[in-house]
Amino acid sequence: MTPGSGDEAILDISGLRVTFTGGPRPVRAVDGVDLKLWRGEVVALLGESGSGKSVTLRSILRLHPEKKTRIEGGIRVQDVDVLRLKGRALADFRGKRVSMIFQEPMLAMDPVYTVGRQITESIIKHENVSPDEARRRALTLFEQVRIPSPARRLDAYPHEMSGGMRQRAMIALALACNPQVLLADEPTTALDATVQVQILLLLRELQHQLGLSMIFVTHDISVGVEVADRIAVMYAGRIVEIGSVRDVIRSPRHPYTIGLMSTRPHGGRLLGNRLPAIPGSPPDLANLPPGCAFAPRCPHAGEVCGVSAPAPVEVSAGHWVRCVRTDLTAKA
């Protein structure tokens, strides 16, 4: 799935398969994901729980327990073959080339150190600078993420900050070593609506300013629309639809995306109407049907859908859909 861009991809995921082997049965959480992230681009990875969106994201930093996970395929960040990295090189790669912000900063930060210390330590670990210089940079970062009275907040512990403030500190920590790629795993899901907007706008602004390339995992389409250039919709471990935000939102072609869009109680849908719901429940990854995983819930499913997993079809420039019946989903 390649949109037209002459530039070289900064992140290139090809044929990614992630299988968890820890349980009684192996579970394939990601089943053949291809994704190129261009320089300065934001891609929203959209999906429900179990769709494999977070697993894909975490694979880029190799955060899964090595012994219980089998990763196949390729992940390249420019010239770095991520799946080949070992020990020291992997530690250098994390945070310096690619860094990540999490849904719950309280769990991602160390509760016994001040936020400032965690940032300066990360800077000192990756770069050869003096503690004073590191502290100065941490202060600049705090100003960048607009934490009020930054000098004082550097000496605060994570639990002394409010949810929104912690998420800003988390962003500062992620940006500490000027990474080229920023991965965001549902960074606003745990936040209140009024705070979520602030964090989204901040991320959008920083991405613009610093020319960051970003993958933004979310389960909320509207969040994706707010920050992303492209949206990739995942279902049962595969990207079922990918395209520019406008294409995916205005003319979704995969029945699942169409279902997700119409299922939202939004604006015009008022009391008393029924919501058009997608029937059934998300699939059991340890027990996937052959062929298209969405077929059992799909209004357009036919015999052909149960045969083999559909290959991506380009419905318009850069807009790919994994569905064999795109003729039925085209807008009249």
Partner: peptide, 18 residues
Amino acid sequence: LSMDPDHRTAAPPITGDP
């Protein structure tokens, strides 16, 4: 959020946390 890529939120309606 607007759900409209051409009319994204420009500024947060209020700042700060509760």
